[in-house]
């Protein structure tokens, strides 16, 4: 994270050790704000204040600081499942890095790519900015490619993923969809996905340990 400011480096992230200790799945969640179209990436089942501090460091009048308390207007955009917690943490870090690039280091380039209205604005009506969600999808694509690992993205619907041409060069991704759910049971649904991911990861890890004969499957040393 060489490009990040000193302020950001001081903010602690959920470490891989933390994810293991609290039996969290190796997931990264992307939440979409229904009112503004802003997206926040999170390692937890709902966006936290910490995530917002990380990802909206350069908030301004047209990219306002959203509130984590409004859990009712944060809806899952996508859930990424990685093979292990270390990969999940670096995936999250990459997403924060990309957000930094958009807001700061490559601000001009990012702004040139945005679709403008007839008045040269990135909005059409009210506080809603459609481009933020589209940029988040592009960031997910970039982060998946950079991770160099087999991962699965569960999208909220077929529409969000965009056309296949944008995903052409990226071979290490498997697209899937979130189940149909009642918004009231959003966290329950995410919790279930996270639990499944954790179980799958543990099973895989166990098999790996068995094959390598390490950890609890290590052969006892020969008694002399």
């Amino acid at each position: 994270m060489k490009n990040l400011s000193s302020k950001l480096q001081n903010i602690p992230l959920k470490s891989a050790q933390w994810l293991r200790r609290y039996k969290c799945g190796p997931n990264v969640f992307a939440f979409r704000n229904l009112e503004t179209g802003q997206v926040v990436f999170s390692q937890t089942l709902y966006p936290k204040e910490l995530d917002i501090q990380n990802q909206f460091q350069f908030a301004n009048w047209q990219n306002r600081l959203p509130k984590a308390e409004r859990k009712d207007i944060w809806r899952p955009l996508a859930v990424v499942t990685l093979p292990n917690p270390e990969a999940a943490v670096s995936f999250y870090e990459n997403l924060v890095q990309l957000r930094f690039m958009r807001d700061r280091s490559m601000k001009k380039q990012a702004n040139d790519w945005r679709k403008k209205s007839t008045d040269e604005n990135i909005w059409y009506y009210g506080q809603f900015r459609p481009t933020y969600t589209q940029e988040a999808v592009a960031d997910l694509a970039s982060a998946v490619e950079a991770s160099n690992l087999e991962c699965e993205i569960k999208w909220e619907n077929e529409w969000r993923r965009g056309e296949d041409k944008y995903w052409e060069g990226i071979t290490n991704v498997n697209h899937a969809y979130l189940p149909k759910y009642n918004p009231r049971e959003q966290t329950v649904m995410l919790k279930k996905i996270a639990k499944e991911a954790y179980t799958a990861f543990r099973r895989q890890e166990k098999e790996l340990f068995k094959s390598l004969k390490i950890g609890p499957y290590a052969e006892p040393a020969a008694q002399s």
Binding site: L98, M101, R102, M106, Q109, A110, W113, R114, K115, T131, T133, Q134, E135, V137, A138, D139, A141, S142, W159, R160, R161, G162, E163, Y166
Partner: peptide
């Protein structure tokens, strides 16, 4: 960085 991916 990639350009935004619009929904389809």
């Amino acid at each position: 960085l990639r350009p935004p991916i619009p929904p389809s």
